[in-house]
Design a protein around this nucleic acid. Structure first.
Lengths: 342, 342
DNA sequence: CTGAAAGCGCTTACAG
DNA sequence: CTGAAAGCGCTTACAG
């Protein structure tokens, strides 16, 4: 492939002149420019951005590390990131960590070597160490979705506590008192906050928290299925409603209820955090996050930190969550509706 | 950040010696190695792969260009690519083309400049020109999902014709004769081949192709919705079955039928190409592709072409498609079952 | 076993 | 307005 030197030779100028034409920097005589442009065209010259990056100390690449691109929540977020980056002339390297700290570590090492300009990170397992590792090397990071304890870092996330509170309250208002919470590991802040919202709403209604109604599995369909099977077998009396802490758990729960022949909402109500994407005739009442916006604003923040427009800090951007009422909740008729305590 | 030079100084050796330690190349005295390793550890030195890439003329990055990462089909394929690449020490740059040739062109320019080692390409709109453009620069390409006319290139795709044939035949065997085909633009080879499979099955059963039963929209939910609305209003007599050419069209079609109050399968049968992911209680009979495997084998082929193990050529790898029977097809009782012609 | 020189393809800072 | 020199951070090929 032709290099800048070849173009220079063909145009009868020095390489630096070619560089100036390409980057539109400095003064160039019209005629010289034309000669150079013609040589570029004839040779179909394409500049090598590796060398440019080496000089500029800027690669125009950012890394996006999510847990699993297969989850539509992350997919849509990824799309938001990508669209924001394209506007800013950045490319995105995609990494799936599968919530695995080791996998995450490997990726970070490679990406640090690659001189990635910045990281958009969903820290696997909510681990703070990774964030520090990146920051120590002076590379900007924006954390997405989760809070990490003990680190100063900018975060963009959804209002997990508020959304969970709203969903739980929605059930309480409709007479539900035994509400199972099927969640994932509380090592992740979103699980903690969703549980906090759940407990806050129950407390307001004077309902004691029953640990027997709470399960922690993994944010996956199979885990949701198992937790539901197990919950229906062991929780006694059976809960009148299930609150699943993410969309995959919800899918698993619905499948389990279907297999058990328990009808929703006639026999049990179901609400979930996260929208259920691609559903034909969606019918579950959910607290929907805005993953596209989440990705977009995180990417924009990262880019403006990279460009120096904004300083890195410890912002905590919390995007609102929307309650979408559908048909998966039954109002319990025979229970006296207790007013909230407040 | 410390460079190799800093490490060398600290260890009291020449940079090249540090390089040899890092790359484990050439002979190094044990003691020297130890000194260098200690200096690396103390300085927390991380090699700059930009420089390595510049020298080696190899970036260990490949580009994956799909139409829209938001579609679970591409998502799962992406996951397959990513997993294969991780095994091969490659990173993936992700690009959404939205079937937009201009967007695709921009990406390719940038990625060519970045010295991307290879391209995994779902050519937007089935356009062959892009492929040629990349090949001309000597960069390996593997095309995914679609055939492109007039280009010698390796392709990994699913058996669109076979899958469509099987699905249509499945309907014919159950007495259906008026089968609507809701598809997307025939500028894309998969749409052409699915239609060919559909027509082949009809021909075998001696059913004349009725152009009035065929619609071409876009492979998206809204388009599937509109095509279905329009089809139900205008096709007369109404078809007894609908064959949707991809998953998003199917979702749109099911929503439209739901809104029209037309029950599936009681009043109309529905089959679709592509699995319907994340469905709670999936009930549509489909011809399922294997997107993960598609991505994985395309990535593996690309990597082995990049490494020189295999030569680029015009392989046409066709992965089988699986018929998954569910509950969306009704056997028509009153129609005499005509035997196929063959 | 180790190193000085040259170069990958580009650009900054200085001359002219 | 244009160019020769030096350098971004690494490695190849040649010495010793």
């Amino acid at each position: 492939m032709p290099t800048m030197r070849d173009v220079a030779k063909k145009a009868g100028v020095a390489p630096i002149t070619v560089s100036r034409v390409i980057n539109n920097s400095g003064y160039i005589r019209e005629e010289t420019r034309r000669k150079v442009e013609q040589a570029i065209a004839e040779l179909e010259y394409v500049p090598n951005s590796l060398s440019q990056s080496l000089r500029f100390k800027k690669t125009n690449m950012i890394a996006l590390m999510v847990s699993d691109i297969t989850n539509p929540f992350w997919t849509t977020l990824t799309r938001g990131v990508e669209d924001a980056c394209m506007g800013g002339g950045m490319n995105v390297i995609l990494c799936n960590t599968d919530e695995n700290a080791e996998k995450q570590e490997n990726y970070i090492n490679v990406l640090l070597q690659r001189q990635t300009d910045g990281f958009l990170l969903v820290p696997a397992g909510g681990e703070p160490a990774v964030v520090k590792r990146i920051q120590k090397r002076g590379v900007p990071v924006v954390v997405i979705d989760r809070q990490v304890p003990g680190v100063e870092v900018d975060i963009v996330r959804s209002d997990s506590e508020g959304g969970a509170y709203t969903l739980t309250r929605h059930l309480l208002e409709r007479g539900h008192r035994r509400i199972a919470l099927l969640s994932f590991s509380i090592s992740i802040s979103t699980a903690r906050q969703r549980q906090a919202g759940y407990e806050k709403a129950l407390a307001e209604y004077g309902v004691a928290i029953d640990p027997g109604l709470i399960r922690h599995g993994r944010p996956r369909g199979d885990s949701g299925y198992m937790m539901t099977m197990e919950a229906m077998a062991s929780m006694n009396p059976r809960p009148t409603a299930i609150f699943t802490a993410n969309n995959f758990i919800a899918i698993g729960a619905l499948n389990a209820l279907h297999d058990l022949g328990i009808r929703v909402p006639e026999e049990i109500s179901v609400v979930s955090f996260d929208e259920m994407p691609y559903a034909t005739e969606p019918f579950v009442t959910v607290a929907a996050q805005a993953p596209y916006e989440l990705g977009m604003s995180a990417a924009q923040m990262l880019m403006s930190i990279i460009s120096g427009e904004e300083a890195p800090g410890n912002r905590d951007i919390v995007l609102p969550v929307e309650l979408i009422e559908r048909r998966s909740v039954m109002t319990l008729p025979m229970v006296a509706q207790a007013a909230p305590e407040e």
